[in-house]
């Protein structure tokens, strides 16, 4: 039996995990330095390092208070939030692409983002405070995916995975109609701009208080997903094949969906809807270390954080006003993705 002619493009199928983690970590370090340095208020990296080091040891930095406030209360939290949200969306996207056996899937396939969006715009319509809006968004995301999962499991006949995805699409468009309704009811001078801004995603309003409610669910969900990475290769096979290999697919699928939804809902509730990150960064990670989940998932988790951090730095520096994240990720994601489709030749 003759092997097919060697493929010209080997797209990193067998590079080791340390390489993926190393490259991602290097981009993160560079991205963090850049993000601290870029902005209207000039900061030197020495100042930043001094403030952070002194803060850790509990000493006063001796630098102007404004400088300290920018580092600790504005750019610092925003950098951490970008890393967390990017990492969360990338991990969820990677897990879902495997679970749904489709490399074109993103974390909102089961309605996590649209559910969170409906919760948030309702909160804005009701003029709630920021924390309540975030809680509503988080609960909206969880509720939407739970509904999709329960309804999808109740439907019988055909492939369970396909039914789940179709249910997600249907419920997602219903939620979209709900968002549309809220928009028409909203005050066009006050609430509508806030809703629009939220739906396009932004980290401009990140405060230190956002970090714990964001980090906690993201860390829990990510730890669960990374723990299951050894079984995710098998989970990306057709259901019967995976069961014949000894994997109880039902319970594991439920846990993966729950973990991915937790981190997606937490991210969306802080950053709004940031599309494309969960779709594009798994492919970048795949280009680095190949599709095998034990290598892919940890790499994607780091790389996603780096990616969103760079995008967010761009978002607040390329124009006199902040560019919504969702606009930038789409502008960058579209050509990237078309290029990917052109050269993939069916192998992911």
């Amino acid at each position: 039996m003759k092997p097919e002619p060697a493929a010209g493009f080997r797209f990193g199928f067998d590079r080791p995990l340390w390489l993926g983690l190393g490259v991602s970590a290097a981009v993160i370090v560079g991205g963090v330095a850049l993000a601290f340095a870029v902005g209207r208020y000039p900061l030197t990296l020495t100042d930043v390092a001094t403030i952070l080091m002194r803060r850790l040891t509990g000493q006063a930095s001796g630098l102007p208070q404004a400088t300290e406030a920018i580092v600790l209360n504005i750019r610092g939290p925003r950098i951490l939030a970008a890393l967390l949200v990017g990492s969360a969306l990338a991990s969820a996207g990677t897990a879902f692409q495997g679970l749904f056996r489709n490399p074109l899937v993103s974390p909102d396939i089961l309605g996590a983002s649209s559910g969170a969006a409906l919760g948030a715009v309702l909160g804005i319509l009701l003029s709630l405070d920021v924390a309540s809006i975030q809680i509503l968004a988080f609960l909206g995301g969880l509720t939407a995916v739970t509904a999709v999962y329960v309804i999808g499991s109740l439907l019988r006949g055909g492939d369970g995975i396909v039914l789940l995805v179709l249910t997600g699409v249907v419920i997602g468009s219903l939620l979209g109609a709900g968002i549309g309704l809220v928009k028409t009811l909203a005050d066009p001078y006050n609430q509508l701009p806030a809703i629009t801004f939220w739906l396009l995603g932004s980290l401009a309003a990140t405060t230190p208080a956002d970090l714990v409610p964001l980090a906690l669910p993201v860390l829990i969900g990510t730890v669960v997903l990374i723990g299951l990475r050894w079984k995710m290769n098998v989970m990306s096979l057709p259901d019967e094949e995976a069961r014949a290999l000894g994997i109880a697919t039902g319970p594991i699928r439920c846990v993966i969906v729950a973990a991915a939804t937790l981190i997606t809902a937490a991210s969306v509730s802080v950053a709004g809807i940031v599309g494309w990150v969960g779709l594009v960064t798994p492919h970048l990670a795949r280009a680095l270390v190949g599709p095998s989940f034990p290598r892919l998932l940890p790499t994607a988790a780091l790389l996603g954080g780096a990616y969103l951090l760079l995008i967010d730095t761009l978002a607040r520096s390329i124009a006199p006003v902040e560019v919504p994240l969702g606009v930038l990720t789409a502008v960058i994601g579209t050509p990237f993705f078309l290029g990917l489709l052109a050269r993939s030749r069916g192998a992911w």
Binding site: F11, F13, D14, G98, R101, N102, P103, N233, S236, L237, P238, E240, E241, A244, L245, G290, P291, S292, G346, A347, W348
Partner: peptide, 14 residues
């Protein structure tokens, strides 16, 4: 053990 009909697979696992 089960050997299914040959399929191409979605991802290019080694």
């Amino acid at each position: 053990a089960y050997v299914p009909q040959v399929h191409a697979g979605t991802f290019g696992f080694l």
